[in-house]
Design a protein around this nucleic acid. Structure first.
Lengths: 189, 189
DNA sequence: ACCTATGCCTATATGCTGTAGGAAGCAGTT
DNA sequence: AACTGCTTCCTACAGCATATAGGCATAGGT
């Protein structure tokens, strides 16, 4: 009976890899147990259940995403920062579809607050410093960016762009240009 | 042994109501069977399984959404049409969260093509007629609108806006204004 | 009144979730 | 080296969902 030396973090990492490989829907306690060659019951010593498994992957993904986004905007400003930030999100979603999907599940209030969620808001807000968006409109601008970027990534991932030409890449570039324009010409009333 | 007089459509309608009430995750063959007071096995005469149940709700939702969106844009143009269309999506998502969530699941190629999906694309494109967006840029504009509108609804529904002020309603109005501006000032290169 | 297709049933196999209780590995102590 | 105790992993089980096979009974046509 060789031990695996598991712990909550290790289990979450395996779960995240599994979600990326097989899809978030395939993320079950049993599947993770198989991946680490252990019986399902043994995992309950490390995670409370299927729900917590998903929440763990969500928190991990939010952290990793925030790190990647932070690196991307560092040293840049204006449209350059916007493009780099958006590109970081899109790349992450392509490379880690399961993790990205997990990052979009609803977390309970407490968990959401101690997650990296606020860091994402802060990063989006930092991009706005390169634009003349009035302070009291920052929330709206952040939400616009979040909605458009996540929305695009989601539709692209769901295959909604697969049945029309041209490639989604061209649209992505244009969408970022239009978002940049929307920020540049933000009303100053 | 009283019969229920079920058929595929009736089952799908019950499934859709159940998804709205309990969430898309709670949409199972067993739960639908309970709702119509029948044994789970009996439903397999009408739907192939859990997957098809979800696909059925997705198709229903896409149809209903397209109908609502079509009514909304009828007789309007420009920013008025844009606002009405977006509002139709948002209202539907609020009133029928389960159906809306189902409409965003990935469908196989064949099913996607005979769904109301293309009607949505056509409706978004029709809104563009009120703007001076070059013909060969229409795809990009449609994708921008789709991404921003669906993205906003999704983030709002996931509670991402719950932890910051002001209300998401104010942002929604501003987002639509910015999208309108993005379309009005679309580059004509 | 009868026949037949069909609507729903029971029974069964398989898989995932989660709990309870037990055994074996690994540490530090003596 | 043996003892003690914690942790890790186990088997066993109960509950529920999916899906298939095969049977019965009822509704509707003849």
């Amino acid at each position: 009976m060789p031990r695996q030396g598991l712990n909550a973090d290790a289990v979450t990492r395996v779960a995240a890899d599994l979600a990326d490989r097989e899809g978030l829907g395939a993320l079950t306690v049993s599947a993770v147990a198989r991946a680490v060659d252990v019986r399902p019951a043994s995992l309950y010593a490390h995670v409370a259940g299927a729900e917590e498994l998903r929440a763990g992957v969500a928190l991990l993904a939010l952290e990793e995403l925030a790190d990647a986004a932070g690196d991307a905007v560092a040293g840049r400003s204006g449209s350059e920062a916007l493009t780099a930030l958006a590109e970081a999100y899109r790349s992450y979603a392509r490379e880690h579809p399961g993790r990205y999907a997990a990052s979009r599940v609803r977390l309970d209030r407490e968990t959401a607050l101690r997650s990296a969620g606020p860091r994402h808001t802060a990063l989006l807000a930092s991009v706005l410093r390169g634009y003349a968006v009035p302070e009291d409109e920052h929330v709206h601008a952040v939400r616009l960016l979040g909605a458009a970027i996540h929305g695009f990534i989601e539709l692209e991932g769901a295959g909604s762009f697969d049945h029309s030409r041209p490639s989604s890449r061209a649209s992505w570039v244009r969408v970022l240009e239009r978002l940049d324009a929307a920020l540049r010409t933000w009303p100053t009333d």
